[in-house]
C-alpha cells in the first residue's frame, strides 16, 4: 500500500472523509520532510565518532565523600581548637609553677639572710657588753688573796 493512499480516504477507515479526502500538500510535505530529517539525524548519529567518557562518580558516592570531607574538616577544626586551648592552659600552668618556685626561693633567701643578720647581731652584742657579775667577781678574788 502506497503511503499516499493513507491520505486519500480509502485506506484508513478511521479517517474522516473531510480529513482523508484530499490531504493537502502541506501535510504530505511535512511528513516527507519529517522522514528525511529523522533519516539524516539517524545517519549522522550512527557515523559519529565514539568517545569513551570517563566514568563519573556515583551521586551517592559523591555525597558520602562530601560528608566524610565535611566531618574531617569539622573534627579537625574542633580538635585543633581543643589542642590550642589545652596548650595555652599548659603554658599558663607552667608559668604559674615557675613563678611559685621563684617566690619560694626568694622567701627562703630572705629567711636565710634574716637569720644570718640576727646571729651577727647576737655575737656583736655578746662581745661588747661586759658581764654583769664581773666587778663583784674581781672583789671576791682580792678578798681571798688577802
Amino acid at each position: 500500500m502506497n503511503l499516499k493512499d493513507d491520505f486519500e480516504g480509502g485506506a484508513l477507515d478511521g479517517m474522516k472523509t473531510g480529513q482523508g479526502a484530499a490531504l493537502d500538500a502541506e501535510l504530505e510535505l511535512a511528513l516527507r520532510q519529517f522522514k528525511q530529517s529523522v533519516h539524516a539525524w539517524s545517519e549522522s548519529a550512527l557515523s559519529r565518532p565514539r568517545t569513551v567518557e570517563a566514568r563519573k562518580p556515583h551521586r551517592t558516592g559523591r555525597l558520602a565523600a562530601g560528608w566524610a570531607l565535611g566531618c574531617v574538616l569539622v573534627a579537625g577544626s574542633v580538635s585543633g581548637g581543643l589542642f590550642e586551648q589545652h596548650h595555652r592552659q599548659e603554658l599558663a600552668r607552667m608559668a604559674a609553677a615557675r613563678a611559685a618556685e621563684q617566690q619560694k626561693l626568694a622567701a627562703a633567701e630572705r629567711a636565710r639572710e634574716e637569720e644570718e643578720l640576727l646571729a651577727r647581731v647576737d655575737s656583736d652584742v655578746a662581745r661588747e657588753v661586759p658581764s654583769a657579775m664581773e666587778p663583784l667577781a674581781r672583789l671576791m678574788a682580792e678578798d681571798e688573796s688577802r
Binding site: 485506506a11 477507515d13 478511521g14 474522516k16 480529513q19 482523508g20 490531504l23 511535512a30 511528513l31
Partner: peptide, 12 residues
C-alpha cells in the same frame, strides 16, 4: 489503521 488515522489527524 485506527491508530494511524488518529495520529494523522493530530499532525494535521
Amino acid at each position: 489503521k485506527a491508530h494511524l488515522s488518529r495520529a494523522l489527524a493530530r499532525v494535521r
